[in-house]
């Protein structure tokens, strides 16, 4: 079948529609964050930074931003701390149930957040742990270990094991070899996993909802305010988050361009983030 130029015009329209469907909401969100009349009224009039000013003086929002960053950073730390050894074990060790472990390692991610959240809540209740940011951190951290494990496992699969042998051969012991050869080669996988986990944790709402104590994370704060009606302040904070995410993705993309081996990780990352 030949595809001619004329025939591709409907396709182009279709593509444009898809893009509009994907990005129009974001564009509207951004535009209305600068709209003097708030979320109502079309077309937007009176360009203003009023909502941003309001946002910057809103302590509750910034507390929740700070909480979310803290949770995300801690979740990254926990997930990597457990995910790297788990990936190494999957790649190198032989143990009973290995195949099963490999199959179910992604389960926490596939499970609906509502189930993960509920089960963790019951666990914490049973253990008598008071709900706080710590419980959210534990929730995110454990649920996202699977992401770290699979990302780093993928990196290890591409890693040429002979390099480790070369290192041992040149007199480096196992720890030196891990630190000087294995880890640097996994750098991109680790950064990729960290970015992915950070993003997933930042906008996680279902698990957090069950485990929340007094301190709100950003998504929960926004959700809470939305129940009282949409305010342009929310648009403003969303615009800022959008800008930051964009910068992170661009930075990551640049990093990847410097090394050809990061290709798949990036693709996966771009697919997984909700940008």
């Amino acid at each position: 079948m030949e595809l001619q130029v004329k025939q591709s015009r409907p396709l182009a329209w279709y593509a444009a529609l898809v893009f509009a469907f994907l990005y129009l909401p974001i564009i509207i969100l951004i535009v209305y964050s600068f709209n003097g009349q708030g979320v109502g009224g079309f077309p937007p009039r009176d360009l203003t930074l009023k909502w941003y000013r309001l946002l910057f003086s809103d302590g509750a929002i910034w507390d929740s931003v700070w909480n979310s960053l803290l949770v995300a950073a801690a979740a990254v730390a926990i997930a990597l701390l457990f995910g790297i050894p788990a990936a190494l074990a999957l790649d190198r060790a032989e143990f009973p149930g290995k195949t099963l472990f490999r199959r179910i390692v992604l389960l926490p991610l596939i499970l609906p957040g509502i189930i993960t959240g509920l089960s963790l809540l019951m666990l914490f209740r049973e253990a008598g742990v008071k709900l706080s940011l710590i419980t959210i951190i534990l929730g995110h951290g454990t649920a996202l270990i699977s992401v770290a494990t699979t990302e780093i496992f993928a990196g290890l699969q591409k890693f040429e094991r002979a390099q480790e042998e070369a290192s041992l051969d040149l007199g480096a012991n196992y720890w030196q070899t891990f630190r000087r050869v294995t880890l640097p080669n996994l750098r991109l996988s680790i950064i990729g996993a960290a970015l992915l986990i950070f993003t997933l944790s930042m906008d996680e709402i279902a698990v957090s909802f069950f485990l929340i104590g007094r301190a709100n994370t950003l998504p929960l704060e926004i959700w809470g305010r939305l129940r009282r009606g949409i305010t342009p302040e929310i648009n403003a904070i969303s615009t800022i988050i959008f800008a930051f995410s964009l910068c992170a993705i661009v930075a990551w993309y640049r990093l990847r361009m410097r090394s050809e081996s990061g290709q798949e990780i990036t693709d996966e990352l771009l697919r997984s983030t909700k940008l």
Binding site: E160, A162, Q163, E165, A166, S167, L168, D169, L170, G171, A172, N173, V181, P184, N185, R187
Partner: peptide
């Protein structure tokens, strides 16, 4: 262990450290 042997190896695909 390999790192204590006074033997060195040239590997089939060289196994140079890419980083």
């Amino acid at each position: 262990p390999p790192y204590k042997r006074r033997v060195n190896t040239v590997f089939q695909h060289y196994a140079l450290f890419p980083h």
